[in-house]
Design a protein around this nucleic acid. Structure first.
Lengths: 339, 339
DNA sequence: CTGGAACACTTAACCGATCAAGCGATCGGT
DNA sequence: ACCGATCGCTTGATCGGTTAAGTGTTCCAG
């Protein structure tokens, strides 16, 4: 089956290719009557502009890219990225932009993919996640002048606009809540320590605990996997002065932590309170359901997509701090048992 | 920054554009010495062929598509798709094919996306998941002659090759195992009843139970969400002759089922044995860890990608049945307590 | 010594859009 | 009546590759 082109439309409408192009793109240069006739024919024969031809003649590729730099094992279970992608799609689909995905092994590979995509003219812009300190991707994006939006900051990103949520505020809320319940020994199982938002959280956690007089606030670094989260939990719970509450940097580790506590014969929330960061259906699924720091990740992704499309269109884009995640109390937090 | 083109290479090498094209594509028509010179220059200036130009002149778009037809809420937590995508990427990245993703609301929308992708020449082929009976996507793919691979069958797919795993064998293994443990009342919480692989599983489950003399084998349909899985579990557990074992069609529902059982004061595996279908890290994370039907989803995805790329290349592609998922016994299954 | 095949290229058409420049018709102003 | 502007379209160049057809050289067989 042959794909219809603007030439086919032009022939049937008795006008030139150029006129068809003007008509379909809403540009001046054709009369309203002709435009409607052309649009009607285009619809009738099911015309879709060839994206390659369009991209070739200087217009946009109508596609944006996302690289995922996590091992398959983590990607498959981590709900964050799929939530983000769903959010992207809300905006992208509405403007018929495609999303191009690539799973890579290292940040170095990500820069290579950016270079390739840019050279191939495959995407108009990219989403950048998992920002690190002195992130090697930033200079590449600046060099290539490839429009981008960084999700998760704030950090040094040169001209690249950023979008982040108020992690410091969220962790402050969680710590205050646990303190109000009577907890004095609060620990945290953090995400990958290289990531900038992990550092932001760690810094905020340390500060708020210090300011509230909780001297023993400790953060154990981890890698977002359930195994590591479980191991970190075990390490925390065998200390002499074990914490009575643990905050986890993602939901998967929180679930693993719950499991470890139960396996060690500790009751949740009686002996240990648990707070998960990022509320996914997972948190309500387990028993007891987990108190979580909730934010609307799909909305976050949709916002990022709007930012990226604006950047692609050449509009000035500001750095944006999204709202603070709010605490959703569930069954995994309670006052510590007197002992 | 200007993108290097073959014209730039041609100028520096002192040859024509055509010669460069032949050299870089490994086609005959240039001497080995010239080829090496051209390749060296291409590498030196960081040349990447413009994918739009390439696609426009009849060559492939070097991209394949995947549509996901699940609400965001399910996508984010369901590990299956991310596992599949990771598998795709192993093959696609190696041959520098891009993966284009689109989240849609209905199968009808999927056909529209196929038509658009085809018209735009955006992808060379598509992955089709969640096959249904009389699936409306199949005639569209046949009409467009768009190369595709169906993941999950077997069903009526015309010329479109399929790849599926032996669901009947897997469920037979699970039922036999539970019987061997002494279970006689085995229930199942199924996935979306429209999906063909759900029907395959239901049929096989019913048959194997009948052949083994388990008359009360019941399947409760569900939608893969934790909420529905939990509700279905509750409904099963309040019946007079409640099942002593439940098989779940995905891991999320199994975790929810575990939670419901615990909430109802039933011990797992003492009062209720649980088997999850598709083993994700989630299954080992909860307490007790879930016995699961494991298969290597990434390998499944990689296989599908190889099939699709072969179909894109015009090679004949056979329907393939992948290996049977195997039972991984963990703490959630045991002989039923005498009562 | 010649005809023809093989080789190593070049030339130019082509894919399907976009868009600047051109061109004839109409219209309003003086 | 004539000039210039505006409208509504056409023409044709262009993007960066691919590829069929053409060209000039070499080399070998007859």
């Amino acid at each position: 089956m042959k794909r219809p082109t603007i030439a086919d439309i032009a022939r049937r409408a008795g006008v030139s290719k150029g006129a068809v192009s003007y008509a379909l793109n809403g540009q001046p240069g054709v009369s309203e009557a002709t435009r409607q006739r052309i649009v009607a024919i285009a619809r009738e024969i099911g015309f879709n502009p060839n994206s390659a031809a369009r991209a070739l003649s200087g217009a946009s590729a109508r596609a944006v890219g996302l690289t995922l730099c996590r091992p398959a094992r983590i990607l498959s279970i981590e709900p964050f990225f799929m939530g983000l992608i769903s959010g992207f799609e809300q905006e992208l689909a509405a403007r018929s932009y495609a999303l191009t995905l690539q799973v890579v092994a290292t940040p170095q590979n990500e820069t290579e993919v950016y270079r390739r995509w840019w050279g191939e003219r495959r995407v108009d812009g990219v989403f950048v996640t998992d920002l690190r300190e002195n992130d090697i991707r930033i200079p590449v994006l600046n060099e290539l002048q490839l429009p981008a939006v960084v999700i998760g900051g704030p950090g040094e990103t040169g001209n690249v606009p950023q979008l982040w949520s108020d992690d410091a505020g969220a962790i402050t809320e969680a710590v205050r809540y646990l303190m109000a319940l009577g907890h004095r020994r609060i620990a945290r199982v953090g995400g990958l320590p290289d990531l900038l938002h992990t550092r932001t959280r760690t810094k905020a956690f340390t500060e708020v605990c210090a300011s509230l007089g909780l001297s023993e606030a400790v953060t154990v670094p981890s890698d977002y996997t359930g195994e590591e989260g479980g191991r970190a939990t075990r390490r925390l719970l065998i200390t002499a002065e074990r914490p009575t509450a643990i905050i986890y940097d993602n939901d998967v580790m929180a679930v693993a932590g719950l499991s470890v506590a139960q396996e060690m014969g500790l009751s949740v929330p009686g002996d240990l309170s648990i707070v998960a960061w990022d509320d996914s259906p997972l948190c309500s699924l387990v028993h007891p359901p987990l108190t979580a720091l909730s934010r609307d990740i799909a909305a976050y992704g949709a916002h990022a997509a709007r930012q990226l499309l604006a950047a692609v269109a050449g509009e000035p884009v500001q750095d944006v701090e999204e709202g603070t995640a709010h605490l959703t109390p569930r069954g995994s937090t309670a006052p510590p048992r007197e002992s």
